[in-house]
Design a protein around this nucleic acid. Structure first.
Lengths: 242, 242
DNA sequence: CGGAGTGCATGG
DNA sequence: CCATGCACTCCG
């Protein structure tokens, strides 16, 4: 059986060309946990094997780019695309299995030059369209099912995880957290603004890089309790298999 | 004053890598007349000094590659490049001063492997476009002039140097020989095919690596007579300077 | 012989 | 026209 908990030691490096015809351009390299240098997306995919979907991963920036997902060719002769209202626009991509687990974690950026405050080139890197603020509501009522067609039971949330949007269900909140875990390269800590200020003016106050939960602190006790739960679950599994 | 008659003792060595990731690839080294090993084109250029144009010299093969000459940047806003019909396409590059004099002479190739008949990789080495068979005719009517704008007098050819193309002038033949001396790494001996078979089917029978002269044998007597002429000329120059 | 750094063919 | 991916050079 494959263990999907991947080595967490990947690093990202950004090198500026210092001479030649291509001076000023940057090359991006990744280093695998065992120190191997990876110089292109196809090579990275090869290193990770078949179990990772790299379609939405942007090699250059090291981030997930929704717009990298290709729209299928429009039907010939169609005067108007009636599916536009429901199109897969990146704001409602279901996040599960979109990318390699290693990229859920922050990666180290190494630079070979000091920061220059005078150069700000907006043209570098693919541009991301604005996010729909409460996109999770679009998923309301959808449930995952396993391969026997039986719907999976919804999960509960710990008491210290509190939703912060307008009428978000537990289900919505889980989707939001799941997406953040898959898409972000920063730690998931929830919204810093108060619930009331966000509900008053979401467009200004929401942090779109965080799930829609109130700011959350994970204590050492929380971690210890979680570890205990995992150990118990493993023990039960082991017993069941013998 | 610089003497442009360069040391003739340069050697070229080709070494095949026997292990590692790059097994089978070759490294090329040159040895200067005083035995210094040269491992790269920049280093070679440094050794030869400023008086050599290495732009067309291919370090790996030891040959002149016309396509190595860069086209200058296309004029801004020009809808069409009217110079295309006259472009410097390699078939009519005037050969004088194109490269270092040492490369007019054959260089010794040392191999550390026996020839392999089973490997024929066409992709290795820069590819050369086909040559125009009688490109020298394009230069007809052009004459070099010195810095007082006075045209230089055409030269005569020895009796044993006979043209072999269709209506080539003495001038054309000299251009052809001059080019061959500058571009080739093999001895210049002229065409082996008979004049009649070349004029019947030039595309098949012409050797594009040789000038358009009938096969020519240089005897020891020829060499001795030429040396005598050079000595006389030097003597006259010496007398004139005192 | 390895590998960082650059060239450059390719295709979108 | 430029981003991408990999070949190649050159020097340790």
């Amino acid at each position: 059986m494959e263990i999907n908990t991947l080595p967490s030691g990947w690093k990202r490096e950004e090198v500026v060309r210092k001479s030649g015809l291509s001076v000023g351009k940057t090359d991006v390299y990744y280093y695998s946990p065992d120190g191997k240098k990876v110089r292109s997306k196809p090579h990275l995919a090869r290193c990770l094997g078949e179990n990772f979907d790299m379609a939405a991963f942007d090699f250059r920036s090291g981030k997930i780019i929704h717009s990298a997902l290709r729209k299928s060719k429009r039907a010939q002769g169609s005067a108007y695309d009636f599916a536009r209202g429901l199109r897969n626009d990146g704001a409602m991509v279901i996040p599960i299995r979109q990318t390699a687990s290693i990229f859920k974690q922050p990666v180290t950026v190494i630079r070979n030059r000091q920061e220059s405050k005078t150069k700000t080139d907006l043209k570098h890197g693919p541009q991301e369209p604005p996010k729909q603020l409460f996109w999770e509501k679009r998923l309301q009522g959808l449930l995952a099912s396993d391969d026997t067609q039986e719907q999976l039971q919804p999960l509960d949330l710990p008491k210290n995880v509190q939703g912060i949007g307008p009428e978000l269900t537990t289900e919505n909140i889980l989707q939001s957290i799941s997406a953040a875990l898959h898409l972000n390269t920063v730690p998931i800590v929830g919204q810093f603004q108060s619930k009331s200020s966000i509900q008053k003016n979401p467009g200004v106050n929401i942090d779109t890089n965080q799930p829609h939960i109130q700011h959350m602190v994970v204590s050492s006790d929380d971690i210890r309790r979680q570890e205990q739960k995992v150990l118990e679950a493993r023990k039960k599994l082991q017993d069941a298999m013998t």
